[in-house]
């Protein structure tokens, strides 16, 4: 890991504070898709971004939003590059991000078990509306690639679940 200069840290915070185009309650930093910010020269900055899903159409909007934010800060030349490796995981969503998702009505993803952890444990998914853990899967795919559709058996409301990846 290369240490960042104070300027890179500032720009990284700035790029990380850009809201996600599809889930505007989350910032890109909280979503964990920002991989790095490098100052290449005076007024020239490269930002590394990773998609949640390979076909995620929001990646282009994310890129232009980051470019705009850094232009406004006075960076003349911003290039956003997409990196696939290492693959993004829902474990990259911060605790604050998880809290905001639940508040917004989307059940946050569960933490994935460690690769060689002890006993595999499937925790139930909590309804973001009433808090009940008595929920059922309606469809593995929902409004966007990253979510599945569930229904709460207690309050009968359907809700999105950010599925584990």
């Amino acid at each position: 890991m290369v240490t960042m200069t104070p300027l890179e840290e500032e720009l990284s915070r700035l790029a990380g504070s850009v809201p996600d185009p599809e889930l505007p309650v989350l910032t890109l930093g909280e979503l964990g898709v920002l991989r790095g910010v490098r100052v290449l020269g005076p007024g020239r900055v490269e930002v590394e971004l990773t998609p949640t899903y390979t076909g995620c159409p929001a990646i282009e909007a994310m890129s232009s939003d980051i470019e705009r934010a850094l232009h406004e800060r006075g960076v003349a030349e911003v290039s956003v590059v997409t990196v696939l490796s290492p693959a993004w995981s829902t474990d990259d969503i911060s605790d604050e991000g998880r809290r905001k998702l639940a508040e917004f009505g989307i059940a946050p993803p569960r933490r994935q078990q460690e690769a060689d952890g002890p006993v595999p444990l499937t925790l139930s998914i909590r309804c973001p509306h009433c808090g009940s853990t008595d929920t059922e899967l309606l469809s593995r795919f929902s409004s966007t690639a990253c979510k599945s559709l569930r229904r709460c058996a207690s309050c009968r409301e359907p809700f999105d679940h950010f599925k584990e990846l």
Binding site: Y53, G55, P57, S139, F141, S142, S143, T144, A145
Partner: peptide, 14 residues
């Protein structure tokens, strides 16, 4: 409808 479109989108990204 939504599931097949989402699978198609993943494949298109790949």
């Amino acid at each position: 409808e939504v599931a097949l479109a989402n699978i198609a989108l993943d494949l298109l990204g790949q």
